[in-house]
Design a protein around this nucleic acid. Structure first.
Lengths: 232, 232
DNA sequence: ACAAAAGTGTTTTAGATACACCCATGC
DNA sequence: GCATGGGTGTATCTAAAACACTTTTGT
C-alpha cells in the first residue's frame, strides 16, 4: 500500500449468505455441510472469501450463483450486516459481510467447491437450536430472518418469494410462512389489491384444483408500502 | 493462519463513524479535516483502523472516545453498513464498517491523531453536495441520516439526542430537525405522553423563559413504538 | 347437492388530523 | 393587559379488524 506505513493489521474478508425461500408454506434457508475443517461435517451458511479486486456485492452475487446457479436478477439481494469478533473463526481473524437473498423458485442446490453437500432446511428448528450452525452463523441467520420479517411489513418484498405470476392467496401464504402467523384472507386481499403498485392484475386465472379459480397477479412497481402491513 | 493455505486475499479494515447531534434545531454531524494524504485538507467522517484483537464495536467505541471524549454509555451506537468498493481508498484495498452514533450534549470535538481539526457541520449542505466529503463518505452519511430518520418513526431513539431531562417540545424539535419537517405540537404531545414507556414524567418544570413552564421528562424503558410515529 | 377456496360488503373500533380553547409564565 | 409557549378537549376522517355473505369451481 504505497505512501502508507504498515501501521495497521490485515484481515481475511468473506461474504456469507442467508438465502431464504418458501416451500410448502415453510420458510427455508440454504445450508451447506462443511467438507473441510474447521467445523468439518457441520452445517453452515454458504459463503466464501472476497477476491482482491472484487466488490462486496459482486462477491455475494458470485457466491449465490455458485451455490444455486441463479443470477442476481432473480429475486432480491441486500447487505445484512458485518460480523468480526476476533474469535469467530478458529483459523484466525476473519471479517464476514453477510447478505440476505430471497428466492422464488429454488433450484436443486449445487454442491460448491468447499461444500460437501447443500440442502434447504426449515428455518424454525435452526432458530430454536443456537448450536445447529457452525461459526456465528446462528446469529447471522437470526438477524437475516428478522430483517426479512420486518421488511415484509413496510415493503413489497414478499413478491420476491413468488414466481412471475401468482395468486393473492399464494402471496398471503408467504406472509404467513415468514411471520409464522395467520392472516385474514379477506382483509389481506383488499389490502394488497388496494395498495397502488403492489401487484398488477393479469387477465389470467388458475385452473381450479379446488374451489373458485383465482386471478393471477404480477409484481407491481411499488417498493415501499403506505401504510405498512403490520404483523400482530 | 494455521491449517489454511494462503488461498485468499487480505484487506485493511476500518471503522467510520456518522456521529449525529442536534444543536440549535439543526441536525449536525462530526467531521474531521484530514491531516495526511489521501484527501489531505479535505473533510471526512472520523474513523480509523481496526486493531488485530479488537471487536468491530469496540473499535467504534474507541474511535468515538478519541474524537469526542465520550464513552459508549452516552447516547446510542449501532452498526450501519459496510463499504468495500475496490477503488474507494486510493491507498489500496480497504473495507470499512460504518457505525451510526447519536449524541445529546456534544462536547467541543477533540482533534485526534490523524485529524488536523474536528468540527460539527450542518448535515443538509453536506447531503446536497456529493463531493463535500472525502472517499465515499457522502454515501455513508446519506445512509446514516436515512437510518436515523427512519428509526425515529418506529423507535424511541429520539431521546438519545436529548439530555437526561427534557421537555416534550424539545423532543419535538429533535423530530423536526432530523426529519426536516414540522410536527403539530398538540398531537405530538399526546402521542408521546400516551405511548407507554416512551417518556416518564418528573415533578420538575422548566424555569419559564417565555410562556408557561414545561414539565420535564426522562427517557422511558420502551425501545419500540407501537404504533409508529410516521413522517408526512 | 355439497365442499372448498375466491372475493365483496358492512359494521365496529382505533388512531391520526385539525384546530378551538384554556393555562401559566415574562414583560 | 398582552405575547408566548405549554397543554387539553373534541369533532372528523381514515384505515384496520371482524365477519357475514356471495361467487365459482371440483366432486
Amino acid at each position: 500500500m504505497r505512501g502508507m506505513a504498515e501501521t495497521f493489521d490485515r484481515f481475511a474478508v468473506t461474504v456469507d449468505l442467508v438465502i431464504l425461500t418458501v416451500q410448502r408454506d415453510t420458510l427455508n434457508v440454504l445450508t451447506v455441510t462443511r467438507a473441510n475443517p474447521p467445523f468439518q461435517g457441520r452445517i453452515a451458511l454458504p459463503g466464501g472469501f472476497v477476491e482482491a479486486t472484487e466488490n462486496l456485492i459482486t462477491a455475494a452475487v458470485r457466491e449465490l450463483a455458485e451455490e444455486t446457479g441463479l443470477s442476481q436478477d432473480v429475486g432480491h439481494l441486500e447487505q445484512l450486516a458485518s460480523y468480526g469478533d476476533p474469535d469467530r473463526d478458529p483459523r484466525g481473524r476473519v471479517i464476514t459481510v453477510a447478505y440476505l437473498a430471497l428466492l422464488a423458485d429454488p433450484p436443486a442446490p449445487v454442491a460448491a467447491s468447499d461444500a460437501a453437500d447443500a440442502q434447504w432446511l426449515a428455518v424454525e428448528p435452526l432458530l430454536a437450536d443456537p448450536s445447529a450452525l457452525a461459526f456465528d452463523h446462528h446469529r447471522i441467520l437470526t438477524d437475516g430472518v428478522e430483517r426479512a420479517r420486518s421488511k415484509l411489513e413496510y415493503s413489497s418484498l414478499a413478491v420476491q418469494f413468488c414466481p412471475t405470476e401468482f395468486t393473492i392467496a399464494a402471496l398471503r401464504r408467504i406472509y404467513e410462512a415468514v411471520w409464522g402467523t395467520t392472516v385474514d384472507p379477506r382483509n389481506f386481499h383488499r389490502k394488497v389489491t388496494g395498495t397502488p403498485g403492489f401487484v398488477v392484475a393479469t387477465d389470467r386465472y388458475t385452473d381450479g384444483d379446488r374451489g373458485r379459480p383465482a386471478r393471477l397477479y404480477q409484481a407491481g412497481p411499488a417498493s415501499q408500502l403506505h401504510p405498512p402491513l403490520l404483523r400482530r
